[in-house]
Amino acid sequence: MAADRPCFPTSIHRSTPNAIRLNRALRMSRRDALLGALGAAAVVTGSRQGMAATAGQDDTGVPLFMALSQRLTDRDTLDPRIGNALYAGIINAVPERRDQIQKLHDFMTGGSFASARALASAAEHQDPVFKDVIQDIMTGWYRGLADHKVVVYRSALMFDITKDAIYPKTYATGGPFYWTQTPPEVAVPTGEPALSPSKLVIEPT
């Protein structure tokens, strides 16, 4: 047991978040130094210099990634800011993806694919690794994730295609009790999958 020693500032009794911020700015405590040394779990300080910085706008892979993404989402327009950040995350997680994206792009331009499904289905047939590339791209645009990190949240396409019915959590702008209203009906889908199925692994909470 450590000896009692009167070193803890009594002002802690009155500490408020703002006072704490000020204190932080004014002194680097032993604790902070210690934590810095420990690497303090896997927590990163919240700067915005995220992954977007690792792939410059001029990365030659980005236009290919955008062209592929448009075909694979069956969309004419996609946000290039999101595309940049997704591409950076995807190649950061798996560096081989840079080449694979290039090859998949070549494959796309070498043929004639009228839909996402046509391209995806043929690509997996051509090389099974393309399935992983395509699913990374789908996860990126629809879920807003790359490299196991959030790239976009509310701007992920999964929320765009459901916005007539539901809001992303924490961005519910229907006003109080909007939820009592009847949401739109949804027809049973008729489309076929393009890729072979994978086992869905739900992350434990």
């Binding site: 839909s115 995806a120 789908m138 629809y142």
Partner: peptide, 12 residues
């Protein structure tokens, strides 16, 4: 996505 859907069919 795990079921293998892409594009329009995925959205559906």
């Amino acid at each position: 996505i795990a079921k293998g859907y892409v594009g329009r069919e995925l959205e559906e």
